[in-house]
């Protein structure tokens, strides 16, 4: 029999610390597969955030920089400018990228840094125990919105992917998910496109992956994926937001 699927050689032997069914594991796997398939292990520098995926460096066998909370895009900016021949990407959650790191994200996008941003949006703060994120849906219950998010108190969830798509430095914005085999295959293509853009110097690529946090949402992994399809996707619509065209230079 022929082997048709196995773990990427770039995934380390460490068992991931993520909860059962967490999307981070699947996305890590895709990142590792794409780097391996592009032959970029020796030419990739990843920047990990603060949040559940802070330990991304334990799982993908490449050089990593662990950034201060929210600052991954600033860190990656310098890495790419100082080593432009390398593929540089950040891996960030919704708290890191769209709350505390909004300024660094927007300005890296606006400067058109030749980096790829993998943005994992599960609408909640996983690591600190399920508090409200900027992306938490209205009515959604979290540790800091226990009666459900109310616009009058907490403001509205926001779509940073759409926001950055308006910036000239950004060449590619897409929103994907990883809850089904078809979705995973599409997400992988998007990550590959983003990494190719970084290598080709086309500007910043922004890949949002709408994800589940079943522990934070207090659902089983399978229920969480179903809830994500029913509740998250109508607000965070999947698909390309800005096509992979080079930025106007």
């Amino acid at each position: 029999m022929d082997k048709v699927y196995s773990r990427s050689a770039l995934l380390t032997d460490n068992v991931m610390h993520y909860c059962p069914g967490c999307s981070h594991g699947t996305i890590h796997k895709l990142v590792a597969e794409v780097i391996e398939e592009m032959g970029l292990q020796a030419d990739t520098i990843g920047v990990s955030p603060v949040g559940c995926s802070v330990f991304a460096y334990n799982y993908i066998d490449i050089d990593w920089i662990q950034a201060a909370h929210g600052r991954a895009c600033a860190v990656a900016t310098a890495v790419k400018r100082l080593t432009p021949e390398k593929m540089v990407f950040t891996y960030q959650g919704d708290g890191d990228l769209s709350a505390i790191g909004t300024a660094e994200t927007i300005h890296a996008c606006n400067r058109g840094e030749n980096i790829a941003v993998i943005y994992v949006n599960n609408a909640i703060y996983g690591m600190t125990g399920g508090q409200m994120a900027p992306t938490t849906l209205l009515g959604m219950k979290t540790a800091t919105s226990p009666q459900g998010r109310e616009a009058a108190i907490h403001g509205y969830p926001y779509k940073i992917a759409e926001m950055v798509s308006h910036l000239d430095g950004v060449c590619y914005v897409t929103r994907q998910s990883v809850q089904s085999p078809a979705a995973v295959r599409k997400a992988k293509k998007a990550i590959r496109q983003a990494f190719e853009n970084s290598m080709a110097g086309r500007g910043l690529s922004f890949v949002e992956i709408v994800s589940s946090c079943n522990s934070g949402w207090k659902l089983s992994p399978v229920e969480a994926n179903r809830w994500m399809e029913e509740s998250m996707f109508p607000f965070y619509k999947l698909g390309d937001i800005k096509a992979g065209t080079p930025a106007a230079i």
Partner: peptide, 24 residues
């Protein structure tokens, strides 16, 4: 030599962090 006007001092020092991590 790379010279960049950052959006803030917060970004500046984190750019320094990234550059320093590359041995520069």
């Amino acid at each position: 030599m790379v010279v960049l006007q950052a959006e803030s001092e917060v970004a500046s020092i984190n750019m320094v962090y990234g550059g320093a991590a590359c041995g520069k």
